[in-house]
């Protein structure tokens, strides 16, 4: 490593300068920076790769395994629930990616660099949310589409496949992207609230995937409604052609509830973010 002991002279005199003609912070620049951040760490590549591989691979595997039984109609299961089955597992990666976008800044201490460059915190959060949403929207839609194609291939062989122009199938292809994007933002909000990766992952997985199933054990209408309204349950129907649980909210209603809950959590996280010391 070379070690110069003096600096090259600065390009301009460092005396106080007017703001005119000099760059300013803009939202476009923040987006560009956040996009650069997310694409230049390997954790993004790994989480997105596992999102795709788990979702598509497990869907193909289960459809290959159960297609025969489903065709004989001995299982009595909703066929449409199987063509995006792998997303149940793949979605964890979307949650984790969202969490990392916030929590990795804290675990590395980089948040101070970020806020030194862009001291206003709401725009920083907005830029992070936008980039994460865009990435997961695109990759989520691709993932659910490929998963459906893969799963449907095996169902088709048994004569129980779906038409790819079926409105519910088309809705699921897009819905997978929407659901995973909002789930990622849910993770981002959680990561920003907790500022700790392992803690946020634990809480996120517990909240979305475990508590969502447990509240059904509460007897009566309370349990029924809690089941419908838990974030994971509410959002997931949009990303399935047909749900295993017929009692859940409809796809768009459920997604609306999930998006609302996520927006609320994000606002709370943003409010704390803007007030807390970095």
């Amino acid at each position: 490593m070379t070690t110069p002991t003096t600096l090259s002279p600065p390009a301009a005199a460092p005396a106080p300068r007017a703001d005119v003609g000099r760059p300013r912070l803009t939202f476009g620049r923040l987006l560009d920076a956040e996009w650069t951040k997310i694409r230049t760490v390997r954790s993004t590549v790994w989480t997105l790769a596992s999102l795709f591989v788990l979702s598509v691979g497990l869907t193909a595997l289960i459809c290959w395994g159960v297609a025969g039984e489903l065709a004989d109609d001995t299982a009595g299961e909703p066929v449409g629930a199987f063509v995006t089955w792998g997303l149940m597992f793949g979605q964890i990666a979307a949650l984790v990616l969202g969490i990392l976008v916030a929590s990795a800044e804290y675990s590395s201490g980089m948040i101070r660099t970020t806020l030194a460059a862009a001291p206003r915190r709401w725009p920083v959060l907005a830029a992070k949310t936008t980039v994460l949403t865009a990435v997961l929207l695109v990759l989520g839609a691709i993932t659910s589409t490929v998963a459906i194609l893969a799963g449907n291939f095996f169902l088709d062989r048994e004569g129980i496949g779906f038409s790819l122009t079926d409105p519910d199938v088309l809705r699921t292809m897009v819905g997978g992207g929407l659901y995973l994007a909002v789930l990622g933002v849910f993770g981002l909000a959680l990561g920003l609230l907790m500022r700790h990766t392992a803690g946020a992952v634990t809480v996120g997985i517990a909240l979305i995937f475990i508590v969502g199933n447990l509240v059904g054990l509460i007897p009566g209408a309370t349990g029924e409604w809690l089941t419908k309204l838990m974030p994971g349950n509410a959002g997931t129907t949009l990303a399935t052609v047909e749900s295993f649980n017929p009692d859940l909210l409809g796809p768009w209603t459920g997604f609306g509830v999930f998006a609302g809950e996520t927006a609320l959590l994000l606002l709370v996280a943003g409010w704390l973010f803007s007030r807390r010391d970095a």
């Binding site: 760059p23 300013r24 912070l25 803009t26 620049r29 923040l30 560009d32 920076a33 956040e34 650069t36 951040k37 230049t40 760490v41 390997r42 954790s43 990795a104 800044e105 590395s108 201490g109 980089m110 101070r112 660099t113 970020t114 460059a117 862009a118």
Partner: peptide, 22 residues
């Protein structure tokens, strides 16, 4: 330590530069 260890030095400076139009 205000740097993400998984990012290269160049990319760290690159995202930082982009925020302020450098």
């Amino acid at each position: 330590k205000a740097i993400h260890g998984g990012r290269t030095a160049y990319n760290h400076l690159l995202w930082l530069a982009k925020t302020n139009g450098i």
